[in-house]
């Protein structure tokens, strides 16, 4: 399946684009996606934290991703 991942802040700068399309096996988890992205973009591992959001909620590591989900990478937030 193909996943579209929205990128923000420093994650967007590391990857070099604001939306990333990746092909992933069916049943890919949030943790599995992070693992793959760390392999492709090693600089992501230097961040204080990196979360996956699915449909505007923080996803648990074992959350299964689906093609229709709105997926985003969430580097450390710094609002306020």
């Amino acid at each position: 399946m193909n996943l579209k991942i929205a990128l923000f802040g420093i994650a967007r700068e590391i990857v070099g684009q604001s939306v990333l399309e990746v092909s992933a096996p069916e049943g890919q988890s949030a943790q599995g996606l992070l693992h793959d992205l760390h392999a492709r973009y090693p600089a992501l591992a230097g961040l204080s934290s990196l979360a996956v959001a699915v449909n505007n909620e923080y996803a648990a590591a074992d959350t299964l991703l689906q093609e229709r989900d709105e997926i985003a990478l969430i580097p450390p937030v710094s609002g306020g």
Partner: peptide, 12 residues
């Protein structure tokens, strides 16, 4: 304000 700083997806 404390929780906003921890969870809200805004980057400075």
């Amino acid at each position: 304000i404390d929780t906003l700083k921890q969870v809200v997806t805004i980057w400075k």
